[in-house]
Design a protein around this nucleic acid. Sequence first.
DNA 1: AATGAATGAGTATTCATTCAT
DNA 2: TATGAATGAATACTCATTCAT
Lengths: 183, 183, 183, 183
Amino acid sequence: MFADRGFHGTSVPEVAEAAKVGTGTLYRYFAHKEALVNEVYRDAKLRLRSALLDGLGAPTSYRADDAERWFRELWRRLGGFANREPDAFRFLEMQDHVAYLDAESRQLELSVIGPLFLAGKLLRERAAGAPIDVLIALVWGAFVGLIKASRLGYLAIDEARLEQAGTACWRMIAPEHPRTRAR
Amino acid sequence: MFADRGFHGTSVPEVAEAAKVGTGTLYRYFAHKEALVNEVYRDAKLRLRSALLDGLGAPTSYRADDAERWFRELWRRLGGFANREPDAFRFLEMQDHVAYLDAESRQLELSVIGPLFLAGKLLRERAAGAPIDVLIALVWGAFVGLIKASRLGYLAIDEARLEQAGTACWRMIAPEHPRTRAR
Amino acid sequence: MFADRGFHGTSVPEVAEAAKVGTGTLYRYFAHKEALVNEVYRDAKLRLRSALLDGLGAPTSYRADDAERWFRELWRRLGGFANREPDAFRFLEMQDHVAYLDAESRQLELSVIGPLFLAGKLLRERAAGAPIDVLIALVWGAFVGLIKASRLGYLAIDEARLEQAGTACWRMIAPEHPRTRAR
Amino acid sequence: MFADRGFHGTSVPEVAEAAKVGTGTLYRYFAHKEALVNEVYRDAKLRLRSALLDGLGAPTSYRADDAERWFRELWRRLGGFANREPDAFRFLEMQDHVAYLDAESRQLELSVIGPLFLAGKLLRERAAGAPIDVLIALVWGAFVGLIKASRLGYLAIDEARLEQAGTACWRMIAPEHPRTRAR
DNA sequence: AATGAATGAGTATTCATTCAT
DNA sequence: TATGAATGAATACTCATTCAT
């Protein structure tokens, strides 16, 4: 519901009704609306983190094909999460979060990005390329844009197109083409 | 204000005060809050469209360097708009729009994407590449992700990094790698 | 708690917690909040009655010094009660009782005043003096005023000042001034 | 209404309805319920102060008859106020005020008691008598007790009985009987 | 045309009371 | 018998909207 209508657009009684409990019951578990939305945020974020990072590890080597394999895996996991939990994903990408997220929630944010950042660092940065933080922002944004466009009906994604999109994104971050270079 | 607090988080009297008019006056110009937010949306979207498309034209040829030049120009314009009107840009990228945008506003959406789509079509699609709609979504999303990351303090963008980001994005959509092709 | 926050300002769960029982348990002993407050009232009133009247008896004679001794004793007992059970005393003097006291509680009120009234009757009323009910109200009010002023920090009472206050009050109700009479 | 049901027992919509305005209107004039009750308190207290002190002055001399005249006047004024504005008087004497009165309101309290205290000081304190603050508390309390007893139906006061009560109270605070002494 | 006071429906939150365990 | 989770009616307060001036 928060993903649909935003924090202010969602009323507590509505939430309670959807949860099939009395309004008062909600307040036995969450001190206030903000506490509730933070819990929802954390829950979603934790599941996203699991989906992305559990058992992922770092790229096994600096070699381009290892790196690509690693990236592809990440991309597939992202796709899986967005597909399985479209509402959670959409909610996590909302903007006005900042207004009500508490310290704990903000902390969590970093625990998702951090590992990606470190892994990205391991891959050799392209000579003429963009810094790793920029690349992460671009790739993440590209993925979000893809999902959003699909949600808004501007396009439809199936497995194949998701792969193609992954290929395109890999091109953004791939180290100088070794094959070309090696020659 | 809508960008900051969202539609439901922004009260009409607040808006009126910020506009230095009486609350009633607002209602002489906008039938209701929804009408107001739609007007704001259209206004922002029109300015975005101008900033992006006015005098842009289509790529002058299918050749990769022409295409790239065209893309670079677009990217620069995007950057300029996001820089000049950060609130407008942020507002346009909010998610919960869907709930209150009317037909006219949604119509406008297409008038921005449409031309990009057509222009994109002109560029030869890569053999193994993603379809044009996917690429547009990716690039647009990448740009939004970049701005958002910057707004949230995850990175800082200056002209140089924006260029680098543009380069990375171009790699996503560039026709067959020239070097490869040259082979 | 009722003395501190008033009937409406005190919540049943708060009371239960302070009593170290479950909320539900309270309702096994008191039909509702009103029944509880009435019980509290009666309990306090009964203890006040005991403190004032147990073994007090009536003045032993109409003679002024006997009457005064009787009054002094009463005054001392009042002081003792207010001192030992400040909350009970304060609670009993609250005003908004009327709204929720039941018949039994109101009945009890009379059992405290009644004996005082009768005893007062026994003392010859002064020719120019006020009727006994007025005098009782005045003295009672004077005592309450003293305690309240002390509670609010307007003055501090010790044993000596309480005695002085008793002397002043006795002057209100004393039969014809002995000295004058002696004339 | 506050006098009847106490602060917590009085609901804002009830007040609004009694005032024949919408609930929201009340909030245009009072920031919250506490602000409202403070305003009510101040309003009542100011009227009480006027009724008691306006044009009263201090006793014209230390002589007992001047002092008594002064006290009688005060007593009559008190009676007049309690009679004219029974609700205001009752409200002012409630106990749980302390919980919600703000600094300004508490300030006002002193502006009523202060002058009485000063005037009382001017009257010679009896050798064996109680200090002035105790006497004020007693007299004030006696008056309140009288009114309360009347309100609760324990007695009925008319002009004559009010005078008698005044006489009794004067006895509490009168300096040593000059006539008796002079002899 | 501009205003802002008035409004009541709507919102977050509390609390007396019930009842399954 | 004791409990405390569940509940929904009630409460303080807000806000989109109206309308007399």
